[in-house]
Amino acid sequence: MRDSVNAIWSALQQPPLVVVLYDDYGLLESAQEEVASIANPSWPVRRVSTVEDALSTSADTLALLAPVDEVATIEELDGGRDRFVERAVPVVVFLLRGGAGERALTQAPSLLSWVRGNLIDPSAQDPFDPDAAREEFIRHAGRTPEEWLMMRRRGELDGSPESLGLTYRALLLEGPDDLA
């Protein structure tokens, strides 16, 4: 069990640097909000756009660094990552997935060696295989999602938490047209 929320939560426990990839600029804001929502709520949060700004935040602040110049930022972090060694709360760097900043990581061994386990790519870490999930459902419930929902509609399910969880799972796996 491991998805990007788990991975972000885990990475945030391990300062000083975390990298999160996002898909397009319109999603940057929500990516930052998501990280802030997963962080310890007692941490102050600051949004910054340069390494210097990130360095100027106190060591117990969650700094969300959305660089204007991703390549320069990666190079600067590679050349001066140790300036962050005393941080108690990480600096989270947001990079466009597949963009110049991510490509620059191939030439940034020092930075990469620090963030290797703290590099979150939601697109790669949140795969969902509906066929495998259906099989898992059948193994767990002993019937298909559609059969389960038929029982629900006939009022044959009990009110247990197990039934509740399976109902949500069945609704997820059921095709949209079946939701009459």
Binding site: V5, W9, F128, P130, A133, L171, L172, L173, E174, P176
Partner: peptide, 19 residues
């Protein structure tokens, strides 16, 4: 906090489960 996730996205049904 780190286990409450909406990452169960079924692209076929275009539904997302939060749990």
């Amino acid at each position: 906090q780190g286990r409450l996730s909406d990452k169960t996205k079924d692209k076929r049904s275009r539904r997302t489960q939060v749990m």
